[in-house]
Design a binder for these strands. Sequence first.
RNA 1: GUGGGCGUAGCUCAGCAGGUUAGAGCGCCAGGUCGUGGCCCUGGAGGCCGGGGGUUCAAGUCCCCUCGCUCACCCCA
Length: 436
Amino acid sequence: MSTQSSAPRSPSGTRDVLPPESTRWERVVGAFARGVEDAGYGLTMTPVFEYSSVFRRGIGDASDVVGKEMYEFTDRDGQQLALRPEGTASIVRAFVQHHPLVPFKAWYVTPAFRHERAQALRYRQHHQLGIEAIGTEDPDLDVEVITVAHDFFRGLGLERFELKLNSMGDAQCRPAYLELLAGVLAERAGELCDEHGERFGSNPLRVLDCKKPECRKATADVPRLMDHLCGPCAAHFARVRQGLEASTVAYVLDHRLVRGFDYYTRTTFEFASAALESAQNGIGGGGRYDGLVEMLGGDPTPGIGFGIGIERVLGACDAESVFAVEPAPLDAFVIDVTEGDGRGAEARDLTIELRRAGISADRAFGVRSMKSQMKAADRSGASIALIVGPEELSAGTVTLRPLRGPGEQYAVGRHEAAVAVTRELAAYQADLNAGQ
RNA sequence: GUGGGCGUAGCUCAGCAGGUUAGAGCGCCAGGUCGUGGCCCUGGAGGCCGGGGGUUCAAGUCCCCUCGCUCACCCCA
């Protein structure tokens, strides 16, 4: 920390991701993209900021995320804008705006911004991977969405996570249940925690989510929404459970699962890592939002989706020691120990030539000893070192030295260098395959 | 917003009850091997001990303030 106190740093609650750690980010996004695209989802990009009303109307003014955590600003035209705090509202806004064919199956990767105090695996800017499927209320779509997330986690090597499942009902059955719950809670107001004893206001479901022992105890045997669903919602939920079981996606019913956004209806779910020690162990969550499209000005249209937190998924991977950081190795590293005014020109030209031949290559810059350049070659992870010095220069050759395999170094003609490297790499790859 | 912990080399950390030129491991650079990496050995560079004020003959060490980081509550990815 010898950095000057006057030097700027990344804002509180944000972080920089540098190589080699960033290579995991590329791979995790790549793995997600393959998985969801194989299921028919297409990349959808929307601006990181929207008119504030998109989030206010979509997520809900009363939610914490909108009410006290949103990064809002007025731009030079006086427009009220906000950085996106989550992914779904923007995608739905785009759906309403463009009327794509349904079902509209979209995937995204995006930063998300919330002004809250940072702590372990909670940031002011974090990153989410997600999908949205808009236009059908078929419960088999719920199964698809949940299974895609489940299989993504599994594909990374994660095993110690739990899928929690609940149904929030719909406009038909939820109001009656809320009234029932409010009545029961009112009778037990004295047993609830300080915060919830006085008022549970517009949303008694919040009390179920409270972690205080008093509230946990008082709500242990309270009526469950999943037991008071209307006919259609009950049938929907049953079909979802049946589908998950058929796909051997393990889940636990959790009537306390109350998600923080107002738009959820029917199926809601959350993936929690058992390996994460920190307070934040939710690695992904989502649910159905059959009223959201209408709330954002579209025709009544059902939808469902999820968001996955990249930082938390990688944290869970660390906790389970899977999906490790693996720096992307190079194919070749060019070493130049020629002398005189032309020093370095061979490395310059040969490196470019290799790259144009489809070989990943790097080199050392500046005047450095052979030993130093060899160390750099080793660090780069390159499979092959190409050495050019005064002897090679006058002989019109380069020395090809395998750095990983068992082979000895040998000379090849300067103009056959790229071909020889390609051949060596192929042989090396064949050995790898044979060894498996 | 509320509360706790911590700020010493690029990184991870030692520095006993305040006492002369602030240390280790790893990393980096150089040499041992005058053109050959990974192992080993030797040497080197790199710190106004987060910043400011105070107590003291003397402060990395004690006190106050400040900034930053971190963990937890709330909520969420």
